[in-house]
């Protein structure tokens, strides 16, 4: 298929979607969030073989950093969170949009720094120990923050609403997520084409061999995770302003919801591939929205069943299945005559 045409259609669809589906603007924005967290999870999980269950830490931390930066542009953070939305705190347009902008950048950089520090400790762990270790960090962070009054404790933080038309606000946040999602996609597409991408795959396929060949394994693991954390932190920052109010355990450090969903998205679509996380995130999000609307009361059971079926029977996901059925689409060649070729020599 013509690639330019395909990308053209996708970009056009992305731009018109919130206008032709006005009732689904928030759901579409959330779908982009799922694409972002799935693509970034796959950077370490699929491409490098380090299955983190703690990426939600960067989402939650991004929220808090952005909120604190956004508030402090206009007010004293302690006074603001003390009032818990009770006082009258007005933000000018400049403070509001400046807060989102600076808050996002600060969130991304702070989370990238956190990834380097946490990674320094946890990248010594392999396999399930790394997964559990990183999950522990996210859980502990949620508990710590919910006991920290300066950032609102267990109540969380309430941020100002979008200063303008309610519907324009929804479109605004849709495009923030869509823009970030496209940026992440373009970034990883480029990254996987560089030597760095190849080194990530080498670490995944045989880390000991990679070390024996002199590859700076720890350095690349830290950089890869920091890049993922940077984007997740920004996604958290946008979420904080989109949601207006967020809590530490249910929203920010939501380990059992978004923290797990991002992994399921990747498995569903196919880990270690460029398009897998995107396809998986869309499938998962649609499935979730449909069950939430039509299977009320059973939605968690349906979601649990989907996770079990994916993990047990469909580990390689849609892309893995396609690669098996249509290897030529991926430019792969499979050797059939190894034995005879060797005999001839």
């Amino acid at each position: 298929m013509n690639k330019t045409l395909l990308y053209g259609i996708l970009i056009a669809g992305t731009i018109i979607a919130p206008f032709i589906l006005p009732d689904y603007r928030t759901q579409l924005a959330t779908m982009w969030l799922m694409i972002i967290v799935a693509l970034t999870w796959d950077m370490t999980g699929g491409q490098m073989g380090y299955n983190s269950l703690g990426n939600i830490f960067f989402y939650g931390t991004g929220m808090y950093v952005a909120a604190v930066v956004g508030i402090s542009l206009a007010y004293n953070v302690a006074d603001y969170t003390n009032a818990a939305g009770g006082g009258i705190y007005k933000f000018t347009d400049g403070q509001y949009f400046g807060g989102i902008f600076l808050g996002s950048i600060a969130a991304g950089l702070f989370c990238a720094a956190c990834a380097v520090i946490i990674g320094w400790i946890t990248f010594g762990l392999r396999g399930p120990y790394f997964a559990i270790g990183t999950l522990g960090v996210a859980i502990a962070a949620g508990e710590l923050v919910s006991n920290w009054d300066w950032v609102g404790g267990g109540q969380g933080i309430a941020l100002p609403v979008y200063p303008g038309d309610f519907n324009i606000g929804k479109i605004f946040f849709y495009f923030l997520f869509a823009g970030l999602g496209c940026a992440v996609f373009i970034f990883v597409k480029w990254l996987y084409s560089t030597r760095f991408g190849a080194a990530m795959n080498a670490i995944r396929d045989d880390e000991e061999k990679a070390e024996a060949m002199g590859i700076h394994t720890l350095r690349y693991k830290l950089i890869a995770w920091a890049m993922a954390a940077f984007f997740v932190g920004i996604a958290g920052a946008i979420s904080a302003f989109q949601l207006i109010h967020f809590e530490p355990l249910e929203t920010a450090y939501q380990t059992i919801n978004l923290g797990i969903f991002m992994v399921v998205c990747v498995l569903l679509g196919g880990k270690g591939t460029l398009w897998g996380p995107v396809i998986g995130a869309i499938m998962f999000h649609v499935f979730k929205e449909v069950t939430w609307n039509y299977l009320l009361g059973w939605q968690w059971v349906a979601l649990g069943a989907l996770i079990v079926v994916t993990v047990v029977y469909f580990q390689d996901g849609v892309m893995g299945w396609l690669m098996l059925k249509r290897p030529e689409w991926f430019g792969m060649k499979v050797e059939q005559k190894t034995a005879s070729a060797e005999a001839v020599k």
Partner: peptide
């Protein structure tokens, strides 16, 4: 390695390119 270690999921050329001297 005595037990031969290559990156089995990559093709031969990719295996070679990832072996460029990192020093």
């Amino acid at each position: 390695f005595q037990q031969t270690r290559i990156y089995g999921a990559m093709d031969c050329v990719q295996n070679m390119l990832i072996s460029l001297p990192h020093r």
